[in-house]
Design a binder for these strands. Sequence first.
RNA 1: CGGGGUGUGGCGCAGUUGGUAGCGCGCAGCGUUCGGGACGCUGAGGCCCGCGGUUCAAGUCCGCGCACCCCGACCA
Length: 409
Amino acid sequence: MHRSHLFAPTRREVAADLGSANAELLTRAGYIRTAAAGVPIYLPLGLRVLEKIARIVREEMDALGGQEVIMSALQPKELWEETGRWQKLGQNDVMYQFKDRSERETGLGMTHEEMAISLIRDAQPSYKDLPLAIYQIQKKFRDEARAKAGLLRGREFIMKDMYSFHVSEADLEAFYKQAISSYLKAYERIGLPVIATIASGGVFTENHSHEFQTITEVGEDTIYTCAKCNQAINDEIIANFPDGCPNCHAELKPERAIEVGNIFRFGTGYSEQMGLTYTTETGGREHVWMGSYGIGISRVMGTVVEVSHDERGIIWPRSIAPFDVHLLDFTKDGQGEKVAHQMKAAGLDVLLDDRPVSAGEKLAEADLFGIPYRAIISEKTAGQIELKARTAPDARVMLLTEVISTLKR
RNA sequence: CGGGGUGUGGCGCAGUUGGUAGCGCGCAGCGUUCGGGACGCUGAGGCCCGCGGUUCAAGUCCGCGCACCCCGACCA
């Protein structure tokens, strides 16, 4: 990709009161724009990051046994009335609800339990069809009272949501445990540190849910982390843990954190409300056990920026960076072109800054963009290439082959 | 939804006691530069958020909206 052809409108300055690092840096670096409060637009660089995060999550969900679908954003009122949530969520103003041209009452999907359940119910499952897990990665809509903090809290955002269906509590339980490890693995691959946090179970269950929280002062949530083991408790249920950490009884101390995922065990609550049953071996009918599993894909993107940037710009983890290398061409005769081709042939995703602008401008932009490796070709390096990690202060001059082998590691 | 703030070229901002708009960046052209957002010259670009009022005259004063930002409440 040539920088001269990349639509990445960067800005030197941005309104002084933006307030969050992710909003400021992603806007300045030309990754996103904003259509309205809490309604982001993803430009080419931003989309690349989003898709890389989505790919990792997708791979982990597939490995867990999930099957990808895309459910609709437009959802009929009738579906939501089955659980009584049409009124409940509409009253809180969280769900977008409106009448279409032919007076049909319609909502915009803010979560998809109802639709997922109706999908499975229509298939009339037997015990042979279970367990089953479907997931999707698409837009969610929530009429937040106050959208804020860039990608962290939007009215329109991208989410992976999975729904699992089981014949028994034990089977749900086993899947749920696997889901926790899949989640941890996904965040690890993304490069985002998270801590699994015990939270309230929400509706239908005495069981706790689990949140995946990234500790940072800019977080909206307060969690209590264990000083000894990797466990945390959400503050809404901290009162239930008077003896400290449930694992090791060590002291729990409060931290601010961003919730980047949340998984629930619903038991049979929704199934009972919506009449979701399966046929048993003996021809009987039993309610399906159910869980749901969410990851805010766009929120993950914003959170990574919050925890991984410096005064010059973003610092992407390798796995989700928009490109592998940012190749800056300082030569007068475009020597970078050939180098870029060789890098590309070696399987690297390279952004070549081929613009006729000053070296300083290219360097500053490289820092802003946050691509993990910066390579420079210039007359000064006499045909060799200088390579530097986004975070490292030093730069090494190497042969192209060395650069390629280093980057492919 | 409560509180506070801000709306002026694409972006960031200034605009005195009311007299029909300015700076920086960016953009276009030319020249000089070329390892940390270079410099000079030239140029294009504005219903001053909207509506209504006051006034000879409104970016500026008054009223009502709307939008955006921040704090709080809320967050299946």
